[in-house]
Design a protein around this nucleic acid. Structure first.
Lengths: 125, 125
DNA sequence: CTAAAACCTGACATTGACGTCAGAGGCAAG
DNA sequence: CTTGCCTCTGACGTCAATGTCAGGTTTTAG
């Protein structure tokens, strides 16, 4: 498939796909006229890349981790695996912090709502 | 306390504090010579701001939410409260996605480790 | 009093993941 | 063959939070 279709199927912009390639996250075969072609697999790969971005990884980090995802072999399962585990931990910590923040927000919302209700009560109006 | 101390205690840069003020997230009293002064409370406030940033809220959104946090009153407990609840939900969804991503990473790490182990086993080496 | 350290405003620089535009070529349909 | 859409490269624009620098004032320590 060509770039437009991959973009549509993965839900990203064409620009992003070219950017991913530039960053070494995505490869493409080229037609004689130079147009990029992709296989079905790439859809999933792009989705994975998006998820990594959403998890706060940079292009460089994703690039370090991706080979491990694609083809597990002895070569990269040393540094890359280490890196992946490390990013997992970082993410885990981040999730924990976000959860605390959400709880804090919950608390604040509850307090504000209670306050608002108190204003509505005839006794306290 | 002056800006340097607040920065140190809240673990942010002086530049950031001035930026927060510019964005309407932080107020300061000024000495006659124009230097900013803060109270103890501001430390917590700055920490909260940081957490909101970490949760992916923009300055503008934090500004919408903050008054509700500071002084719950009828005025802002309408729009701001709504906004806060909305951001809470957004954050919650984001956490869920990150958790899925982490699980995916876990899975990948497990697969890669298993693969590596298989290479080490005499039977498969 | 003086030197160092902290502060001020204002402004330009940076970073990362894109958006967007220009100018040119490629490709299926009528 | 042309119309219209897709694609190409290359380059500049953007946005948000922050770094950084310049040039000047204030506070603090000795």
């Amino acid at each position: 498939m060509r770039i437009g279709e991959l973009a549509a199927r993965a839900g990203v912009s064409v620009r992003s796909l070219r950017y991913y390639e530039e960053q070494g996250l995505l490869r493409s075969t080229r037609s004689t006229s130079g147009q990029r072609h992709y296989t079905e697999e790439e859809v999933e790969r792009v989705t994975f890349i998006q998820r990594m971005y959403a998890a706060g990884l940079s292009s460089r980090t994703i690039a370090e981790v991706l080979p491990c995802v694609e083809t597990p072999s002895e070569e990269h399962s040393d540094a890359a695996l280490e890196r992946m585990a490390q990013e997992r931990d970082r993410l885990s910590e981040h999730i924990a912090e976000l959860t605390r923040t959400r709880d804090k927000l919950d608390e604040l919302v509850a307090v504000a709502r209670a306050y608002r209700e108190s204003l509505r009560l005839p006794a306290a109006g």
